[in-house]
């Protein structure tokens, strides 16, 4: 069962069973952002309150596999109270954790700068999702929340 336990770490299953920040926020002032993985039916809905460059509150809704829902819950816990600049940096760091190649493609900087930029970023619990990298088809489940977050931030700012 070692491969599976690498993917489904206890903290991931904990977020899956007891997701944080479930709910909705009134729109406006909140921004609503929706993400889908059309192939597997994962759905993430985010409500973001952004005030003075800070993510002051966010709520999550949607349904999907354990990885997508746990990743959304963990993301919500990680970005609440952070500045937009911090959130964007954290997003890049998380994507680098999933697949450095993807970050290089999407990042504005070249690879070496990107790595320097991310050196100081602490991912904390999010590192539990590292096991997903070994299961390539599930990477999009883990990144859905973060892509949906960036989409919402782009709209909010």
């Amino acid at each position: 069962m070692s491969g599976l336990e690498d993917l489904y770490r206890e903290i991931i299953l904990d977020h899956y069973r007891a997701p944080r920040n479930r709910g909705e926020l009134p729109v406006p002032p909140a921004v609503k952002s929706e993400g889908f993985n059309p192939l597997c039916g994962d759905e993430v809905v985010l409500y973001l309150d952004v005030d003075d460059g800070v993510v002051t509150d966010l709520k999550i809704a949607g349904q999907g596999c354990s990885i997508s829902q746990a990743s959304t819950s963990m993301m919500s816990a990680a970005v609440k109270g952070k500045t937009i600049a911090e959130v964007r940096q954290l997003t890049r760091a998380f994507k680098a954790l999933m697949s450095i190649h993807e970050s290089k493609l999407e990042g504005e900087q070249d690879g070496s700068d990107l790595e320097d930029d991310l050196k100081g970023v602490r991912l904390g619990d999010l590192e539990a999702l590292q096991g997903v990298v070994k299961f390539p088809v599930r990477i999009k489940c883990a990144t859905l929340a973060w892509n949906t977050l960036i989409q919402g931030l782009d709209e909010a700012t």
Binding site: C40, C65, S66, I67, F135, R138
Partner: peptide
């Protein structure tokens, strides 16, 4: 349990 999670465990 989501179908993808079921499938993942089955693959094990």
């Amino acid at each position: 349990i989501h179908a993808h999670d079921v499938s993942q465990v089955l693959d094990e």
